[in-house]
């Protein structure tokens, strides 16, 4: 398996994975989406709340706030030595104390105080609630790591998709009788493609951006296309992945964690199969 990063920003990235089959690609996609742990608030203790929103609504909103997750210093609470009771290895306290004294006031995520500066809301501008004059909001919340398959708030990736790596072969000899009028914008072979992949350059049909091709094959089957002039194929065993992070960690970290978890799972499965074969060997 070879991974090659195409584009990367702090939120999105795309990469090519070579040397895997569809099943592996889909497993990797599903793991990146649902099994890479992320931090989220899972318990809120309200001490005072006289805002127009009920405790439950505020707690629900707090839970959905994406938090920057540090996978190196925290573990899943099920795997923690404290057995899920909540200790500093698996849980972070977040406090909030706001009072609207003289005028109406909005409560933003910037009003939350985290006990660990590494675990904080992704954005300071998320509005939690509005308060009218004289009301108070005082609560203590606990965040922990969780898996996306348990609740969507624990999803580290908001988008994980893949497509086949395209391969476009253009047979210039078959295009000999094709009449190109020197106008790229009105040429049927160019405008036919919904993704604008093909272009004429010096009387030769060329591919402008291979990554944009979605393998629809319109250019292949088009009435204007001479037979065998354009052939679009998927490269077997090669996939382009698209990944978007919720902001809890950089997308390349999600990819790395995804691959690591996948390898662990495959390893565990192999051990179980070995165990089963040994058991059957002893019985038979």
């Amino acid at each position: 398996m070879k991974v090659n990063i195409l584009t990367r920003t702090d939120k999105r990235m795309s990469f090519v994975v070579d040397g895997i089959d569809v099943e592996t690609a889909n497993a990797l996609r599903r793991i990146m989406l649902t099994e890479v742990p992320a931090m989220a608030i899972h318990e809120v203790l309200f001490i005072e709340n006289s805002t127009p929103l009920y405790d439950e609504i505020i707690a629900h909103r707090l839970g959905l706030i994406p938090l920057t997750s540090d996978l190196d210093s925290y573990v899943l609470s099920e795997q923690c030595k404290c057995e899920g009771a909540g200790c500093e290895r698996c849980q972070v306290g977040i406090q909030c104390s706001v009072a609207a004294k003289d005028a109406n006031r909005n409560v933003y995520t910037s009003d939350l105080v985290s006990l660990d500066p590494k675990i904080r809301p992704v954005s300071d501008k998320i509005m939690i609630t509005k308060m009218s004059k004289g009301s108070k909001l005082l609560f203590e919340a606990y965040a922990r790591l969780g898996l996306g398959k348990d609740h969507a708030k624990y999803q580290a990736a908001t988008k994980a998709t893949y497509k086949y790596y395209p391969e476009i072969t253009i047979n210039q000899a078959a295009l000999k009788d094709y009449e190109y009028k020197g106008d790229n914008e009105n040429d049927p072979l160019v405008t036919m493609c919904p993704r604008n992949v093909l272009k004429w350059e010096k009387n030769e049909l060329v591919v402008t951006d291979l990554m944009r091709c979605n393998l629809c094959g319109t250019c292949m089957r088009g009435l204007e296309t001479p037979k065998g002039a354009v052939v679009v194929k998927a490269v077997p065993g090669k996939f382009i992945f698209f990944l978007e992070s919720s902001g809890s960690m950089p997308p390349d970290r999600i990819m790395r964690e995804g691959i690591k978890i996948f390898q662990e799972k495959v390893g565990r499965f192999g051990d179980l199969v070995k165990e089963l074969i040994e058991k059957q060997g002893r019985a038979g």
Partner: peptide, 13 residues
């Protein structure tokens, strides 16, 4: 709402 109902992207900010 804090997040997109469908994909989970942060929209509240």
């Amino acid at each position: 709402p804090i997040r997109c109902f469908t994909c989970g992207t942060l929209v509240a900010d």
